[in-house]
Design a protein around this nucleic acid. Structure first.
Length: 268
DNA sequence: ATACCGACCTGTCAGC
DNA sequence: TGCTGACAGGTCGGTA
């Protein structure tokens, strides 16, 4: 569900709400749980730890923990439908709740995920997945990621080992703004096209973060607020509707199993 | 090494 | 009303 702007919004909201709080106890649901680390290890790491900060890395939410001087990190990936909610303990537990952390402040931090694509893990050293942060990478490095790749540029944008945090919405939206068709071979983009894509991607991510992300069906931030960037989508979810620039009908095709939206006139 | 494609899950919505 | 199929913000592992 959430891509970089949504995860960034959620992480900022969580940081405001739970930074400095202490985790008193941890409940993990039974069944095949979405855990990448053993349940006992997650329990042991989280219990009694103080939340020193919350931040985003790619599409991951990173809780920096301080447990008796030791630095640990709790990593949450929300998958498609995952949510992290701060709630009063007496409020009803939503269906598909897979983890509940009781905080010293008396509140609960709940992980809810109907489709179970989300993942929880803990790491002891610095969490450093592959891929570059699209907002931090320089242009030369960015251009180098695409060099000699035969894969469609859309797929390259979604590849988290190259850039981390870009998902289906922002890949389509940045390709539209750059005037590049999603099926173009990544390695065949001209330098000028790469330059446009680089700028478009950074701009669209920044604008989306300012808008609090895109809310489609059920995304809300840590405070239950909906994002507003869906109103600025120009191609994503607009199949058959007129291009906002030239009125041509927006097309939807499938690339590597994911839908891709583009304007056949504006993108070449 | 690289690139597709199904699998993993549940929910929703359109069409019949 | 109810059934079926398509589709959904993501990632992984197997295969070609």
């Amino acid at each position: 569900m959430p891509e970089l702007p949504e995860v960034e919004t959620i992480a900022r909201g969580l940081a405001q709400r739970v930074r400095g709080d202490r985790i008193e106890s941890v409940w993990l649901g039974s069944k095949p749980e979405p855990l990448k680390s053993p349940a006992v290890e997650i329990q042991a790491t989280l219990e009694r730890a103080r939340i020193a900060g919350v931040r985003r890395v790619g599409k991951h939410i990173v809780f920096d923990l301080d447990s008796e001087g030791a630095r640990r990190q709790w990593i949450v990936h929300l998958g498609m439908t995952g949510r992290l909610l701060v709630a009063r303990p007496e409020s009803e537990l939503p269906k598909h709740t897979h983890a509940v952390l009781r905080l010293a402040s008396g509140r609960e931090l709940r992980f809810v995920d109907p489709r179970r694509f989300g993942r929880l893990s803990v790491v002891h050293d610095e969490f450093a997945p592959d891929g570059h942060e699209p907002m931090d990478i320089g242009f030369e490095l960015f251009a180098g990621l695409f060099r000699r790749r035969k894969t469609p540029v859309k797929s390259a944008l979604l590849n988290q080992k190259l850039l981390r945090g870009v998902g289906n919405i922002y890949a389509d939206e940045s390709l539209f703004r750059a005037g590049v068709r999603p099926r173009r071979h990544a390695g065949r983009l001209t330098r000028q096209e790469l330059r446009r894509l680089y700028k478009a991607l950074q701009r669209v991510l920044n604008q989306a973060i300012k808008a609090g992300g895109s809310s489609i069906s059920d995304y809300v931030d840590a405070g239950g607020e909906e994002g507003l960037f869906q109103f600025q989508h120009r191609v994503y979810g607009r199949e058959g509707e007129p291009c906002l620039v030239c009125k041509t009908a927006i097309k939807r095709v499938v690339i590597a199993g994911r839908s891709a939206h583009y304007c056949p006139n504006c993108q070449s």
